[in-house]
Structure formats: C-alpha cells, structure tokens
C-alpha cells in the first residue's frame, strides 16, 4: 500500500464490453457517448475529500 490514501501502486483491468442498449445518435452526441455504461461526466468536487477513498 502506498501513500496516505493507502492505494495499490497499480492495478488496471478492463472488463470486456457487452453490446446492450445504446442511445440515439442525437442523445449520444449530447452526452459524448452512445454507450450508457461509458457515460461518466466529470463532476468537480471539493478538493479536500478524496474521491477514491469513499
């Protein structure tokens, strides 16, 4: 474990994406992806709290 937030040095994995529901072209362009499972907009948070520890 490394550093004050007790995080592993590196552990990457990518589960294989399945083809499920997809948004329409119009919706997809608005959201930045046609795949709901990949939609994750950046939401700025207070710097104090550590997002990964929750």
């Amino acid at each position: 474990m490394i550093g004050p937030y007790k995080m592993r040095l590196a552990r990457a994995y990518i589960p294989f994406q399945r083809y499920g529901q997809v948004w329409s072209p119009a919706e997809g362009l608005r959201r930045g992806t046609i795949f709901p499972e990949l939609f994750s907009p950046y939401i700025p948070r207070d710097k104090g709290s550590c997002g990964t520890c929750q």
């Binding site: 994406q17 083809y19 329409s24 072209p25 119009a26 997809g28 362009l29 992806t33 046609i34 795949f35």
Partner: peptide, 24 residues
C-alpha cells in the same frame, strides 16, 4: 443530423474494432 450520425458511426466503429463478430 450529419454531425450526430457521424458521431454514432465513430462510436460503433470503435466498438466493432474489438467486437468484429457482434451482429447487433
């Protein structure tokens, strides 16, 4: 409409690059 369709085509292209057999 052209921009929307081009965006969707790129998204599907990227998915199909790694899932070339996916018929849907």
């Amino acid at each position: 409409r052209l921009r929307e369709l081009e965006f969707a085509a790129v998204e599907l292209n990227l998915f199909l690059d790694t899932h070339p057999e996916n018929q849907e």
